[in-house]
Design a protein around this nucleic acid. Structure first.
Lengths: 160, 160
DNA sequence: TTTATTGCAAAGGCTTTGCAGTCGC
DNA sequence: GCGACTGCAAAGCCTTTGCAATAAA
């Protein structure tokens, strides 16, 4: 999906529910789509603070991220123990994540067969899936190579 | 594994690292194994407060839960958005979870094929899995039958 | 006795919220 | 002009921590 189309969708989304398109919302929206990394609310706040444009308070960042998530423009990923990161979603295919505990890197993966099996597991129990999280935590290739040992410059999530 | 054996293991665990077996630790330990439900730190604290025995402060509950997790006696499950629940683990097989957003019920499931595929996905990327979370959120059979509609007495997790 | 442990209350990290001023529509 | 939005600072929620008293070993 082209960026222009996504923007249009966002504007419609707001209009439909009589929400206003403020400079702040525009900045949060644009910045979220300008990165392909995963980011936290705090990080996004800092980006906006340090780049040019109308100021955006932390409160507004949180409120807008929430809005964007409800609207299906971005998705939040629970990094474990109260850590949330976001990623924009339009134009992406569904995927799951592998998180390196040493360097914090997040890799995406997707396996149709796993999706099918999980669907089957749910169906057999009469469970209706609304969403799912499939998250592997451990060490990425780079970190395993770098220090075949332990320790590291890790961001130090406690465990998994 | 019989309870007596688990207790023994706990005592050994403490002894090995010169930790002390206090009445508080014993209570937290015993209470954790006395339930087959998933519980939060707060819930466990309340159970201990309301049942007979030496008082256990919230701080000690947290500290001991942490200790038990490190020791591999219990496991924590991230319910999403900063919610942690625990379950004892000895004598259990690994399993994943389906969480009903309406009634809060947590069902366990396990599929060896999914485990194998996830292992394969990791291996192909050079990723070493230390732990994983596979959590489906949605509506359980009972809730779907009860109110074919929406709404409900849900504990109201925001979304998934 | 020695060292780990407890409880308390304060501090933390992150997110949400009440309110009054402001701005899109 | 009206109703939604923003920023601020305070409040919340859950968890951790420093410290002095306490209790295992």
């Amino acid at each position: 999906m082209k960026h222009a189309a996504i923007v249009k969708r966002f504007e419609e989304y707001l209009r439909e529910r009589q929400l206003k398109l403020t400079a702040q919302r525009r900045r949060v929206f644009e910045r979220s789509f300008a990165t392909h990394e995963h980011f936290t609310a705090e990080t996004l706040y800092e980006w906006l603070r340090d780049e040019d444009g109308p100021p955006v308070s932390r409160a507004t960042v949180y409120r807008t991220l929430d809005l964007l998530e409800r609207g299906g423009f971005i998705e939040s990923l629970d990094i474990g123990r109260g850590g949330l990161v976001y990623e924009h979603v339009l134009g992406h295919r569904h995927h799951d994540h592998m998180i390196c505990l040493e360097c914090g890197r997040i890799e995406e993966f997707h396996d149709e067969r796993i999706e099918a099996l999980q669907e089957e597991a749910a169906r057999s129990r009469g469970f209706e899936i609304e969403a799912h999280v499939h998250r592997l935590t451990g060490r990425c290739r780079a970190c395993r190579n770098r220090g075949a040992s332990r320790g590291g410059a890790g961001r130090g999530s406690k465990r998994a």
